[in-house]
Design a protein around this nucleic acid. Sequence first.
DNA 1: CATTATCGTTCGAGAATCGAACGAGTGTCA
DNA 2: TGACACTCGTTCGATTCTCGAACGATAATG
Lengths: 151, 151
Amino acid sequence: MTDSPPAGDGPLGIGLLCFIVQRTMEDRVLADLAAAGFDDLTMAQSRVMARIGPQGTRVTDLAEQARVTKQTVVTTIHQLAGAGYVRRIPDPSDARARLVVFDQRGLAALEIARKTEAAVHEEWTRHLGRRETERLHELLTKLREITDPYR
Amino acid sequence: MTDSPPAGDGPLGIGLLCFIVQRTMEDRVLADLAAAGFDDLTMAQSRVMARIGPQGTRVTDLAEQARVTKQTVVTTIHQLAGAGYVRRIPDPSDARARLVVFDQRGLAALEIARKTEAAVHEEWTRHLGRRETERLHELLTKLREITDPYR
DNA sequence: CATTATCGTTCGAGAATCGAACGAGTGTCA
DNA sequence: TGACACTCGTTCGATTCTCGAACGATAATG
């Protein structure tokens, strides 16, 4: 029973509520990406790609952030690279490592994703109110301090 | 790029933050279940089982709540039934449907899951404060109004 | 320099998920 | 009542996702 079991008829737990919110954002972004022509992106690929930083990110770090193993990331990055979304460059600071960076197609997709995310955030802000949305963001950020093992 | 892309170095989006929180709860519950002897439960199985209500839940409803297809739920329920966690009874109100209900082993697992969830919530409350945790819960519940298509 | 740890990778297998289609039962409405 | 469209759970087949184990190359430690 991963997450809060709603087997009781009481209110949903925070974990389950977070699932709903997170999944909604995922679906929205993925839908908009598909509509914009990036219809070859899967959810698994998207989840990994979303963790790539502007200066590039190591496979190991991507795995930690996305909560999957390195093997999974390697596979996913291979797919993304083949589709022109990312490419790998040597890490200047470590000859063992390689940095996964956005390629042209990836940057274009990133732009769409950013816009969608902003739009969804706006929707949420309209529903909750600006002040309350900020509060929610603050609380989640504070909660991250003890829930994100890789901070 | 499912979820908020942190490619910018700014703060994480609400979607991504929710992922971290939700995943943490999932991991904790699953770990405690495994430690309590329910080590045959996978995350996918747990996610579906967590949606079973006290009076039983239809396959279609489980699919909607867990955000997977009916086929996936059928497969998962088949596994869970084989392991003694759930069983299927006819739905009195609809001869087409069947209700998935907890079996003995499922109830035992549910108890563990409930305890763990409560313990994690307590941890979070200690970190955020009682008042703030309630606020977080309220905000997420309110956000659910527009993010849960199957409410 | 020797040893230990980390990085990315390959291989192989298992798990998870979906699309399409179907029989059984329900709801609707002329 | 009867015809038609819809829903429910299910099966089959295929694809995707994910992991465990292991390895060479490089880094860090002493």
